[in-house]
Nucleic acid binder design. Structure first.
Lengths: 340, 340
DNA sequence: ACTACCTTGTGAAACGTTTCATCCGCCCGT
DNA sequence: ACGGGCGGATGAAACGTTTCACAAGGTAGT
């Protein structure tokens, strides 16, 4: 099976290079008879287009990339699926990169993607502030859409869920139930989502009319393991100084906290109430079904991809848009009024 | 910022094309002074290699792809992470494709990957039998490693976990507890893992000395939703004809079954015992911590990637290897002896 | 019969690398 | 002084596409 290209096909069909290319890209511009000869030659030879060559010529590829903080977090897999649907429908390919919340890894991925001249980039950056590498991509003309994050410094399209509002909803719910000492479990604080959810919670409590303490337990990551550790810290506190409710920045953490509390002998929600964030499918299936803040995950991905493709297809300048979705509180069995 | 390539750099540094290329690929073969000039020119210009051009010349890329059945299944995300670690350590990039158990989608992905001339392919094929497309890739010289599946027709390297043994472990455990009517929930039956796990269970029960019935509830997918539906079917059965234990082909199904049973008013394990498969992290955090069959997920991915790279690096013929891992039963609270 | 136009098809150039044969000085040993 | 080696640098060719200006031949209108 000849591995060569269009040339071989052309020879076999007795036409020129250009004609084969036309058959591939503008089939109508070629006479039916010739077209058939070429098509036959193609599959007799088992010819397959060479994408590298094609994109070298074209200047950019049909590949769109998404860089997420954690592939094993169901929140992101759902976002990915949303984006995937849109990109594939448009005939492209979505490559998924995992930064694992590590700036260095994120950097390596971006470097590779830049070398690949990807068509566009969906990203939830690990860190907030200025982002040199990202700015470079943008300068280079690669469309970038920020996912699950307001665009901040970088003037780009963005798709996000109002995390401040989400934090408010969670905290207000707990305050209304009568909790006066609430723990916020989340981290690293440098992650914008974490900071916003915390800010929202703090704001809601302030409005609620003081007297409610919000104690922060910062974690190293947004994972089940980190949650379990945080729960240990909470369990060792003497009864009086222990929060009566916990608001986690993320369902993974909440699941971990739930495990940790159970191991430590505290019951949810009797001894301590628990609220998660994301409302991943597993939240409803947890040991104690989790009250959580729901985000439109797939839609987030779909919208982000749409904005990206739109920008990529527009030659002229393009007005950046910022889509913000509203989160929603889903109350289940992990929250109840504090025991008196 | 000039987007042009090596040429611009060469001009600026006052050297030839070849020299710049040498600086990039064989830095030692060029005099330190020249090297510095070139390097300086490179970052003054913000030059970034063009991968398409590079790989057009080279003939194949540094990209390895993995095609999984379901990105949102934690089993696969863990496999992916294992593979990712190995590939990235080797300086490559792993692209994750999701077939979603749909042969057509799988086909589209393979077509694209073939056009991209990927360096190698890790895949859990949707279907068992012959696989024309895969055979073509192989003929073309693209290394393929089968993941979580014996190599079957295709003579390739493979990495798998002994699913028959896993099925045996689960069924034997239930039989020993005294269950005499066990449900197997899983599907589609065309998926090899499902078939093998079922076969293992059947074999174990046969050996156990007859009298144990294994009733199959086939599902359309290996998802939480499908599990919930299966549970409904089980709940409507009259007490006497209802199985006293359920073995699910997968933890996602088990989680769904758990929810469905609870909704239907049956308690686990008192009314009905439940065993899952994969031992994903969420299994331990479930409403009732799940007894499950554990697989070395990350290791599966790592080993697969290692075999692949090994094959890709070997010019000479290469003996295909089949690595089979042993699963392990993890007993938690979802299983108990049947009520009498 | 002449021009104008349309449809098909052609072939060379360009995309940005890498590779490879070659070349240029220069030092060393004789 | 001369050939041999050697470290460094060169430039053209090749990788497989796509594009574009152009040619060949046919049709139609005048």
């Amino acid at each position: 099976m000849a591995v060569t290209g269009i040339k071989e096909v052309a020879r076999r069909a007795g036409v020129s290079l250009g004609t084969v290319s036309n058959v591939l890209n503008r089939p109508d511009s070629v006479a039916p008879a010739t077209r058939k000869r070429v098509l036959d030659a193609i599959d007799e030879l088992g010819y397959v287009r060479n994408d590298s060559a094609r994109h070298l010529r074209a200047g950019s590829s049909r590949t769109v990339a998404i860089v997420v903080l954690d592939v094993s977090n169901p929140f992101f897999t759902d976002v990915v699926q949303g984006a995937e649907a849109v990109v594939e429908a448009a005939g492209g390919m979505l490559v998924v990169c995992n930064s694992g919340q590590d700036p260095a890894r994120e950097g390596r991925h971006l470097a590779t993607l830049e070398e690949q001249r990807v068509r566009g980039l969906l990203i939830t950056p690990v860190e907030n502030g200025r982002h040199e590498r990202l700015e470079r991509l943008v300068e280079r003309g690669i469309p970038v859409v920020l996912v699950d994050r307001g665009s901040g410094q970088l003037n780009r399209c963005s798709v996000a869920v109002d995390d401040v509002l989400g934090g408010r909803l969670a905290a207000a719910h707990l305050a209304e139930l009568g909790h006066r000492h609430i723990a916020f479990v989340g981290g690293p604080a440098s992650i914008a989502q974490v900071a916003d959810r915390h800010a929202g919670a703090a704001a809601a409590l302030a409005e609620h009319g003081g007297g409610v303490e919000l104690e922060v337990f910062e974690t190293k990551a947004l994972s089940v393991t980190a949650g379990r550790q945080a729960a240990e810290d909470i369990c060792v506190l003497p009864r009086g100084r222990r929060p009566t409710a916990v608001f986690c920045a993320n369902d993974l953490l909440a699941l971990g906290v739930l495990q940790g509390l159970t191991i430590g002998g505290l019951r949810v929600p009797e001894d301590i109430a628990l609220v998660g964030y994301d409302d991943i499918d597993f939240a409803a299936a947890a040991a104690v079904p989790l009250t959580s803040v729901r985000q439109p995950r797939e839609q987030l991905g779909r919208t982000a991809a749409q904005l990206l493709l739109e920008e990529a297809d527009t030659d002229t300048a393009h007005g950046h848009r910022h889509v913000v979705f509203q989160p929603q509180l889903v109350v289940r069995q992990s929250t109840a009024a504090p025991r008196r």
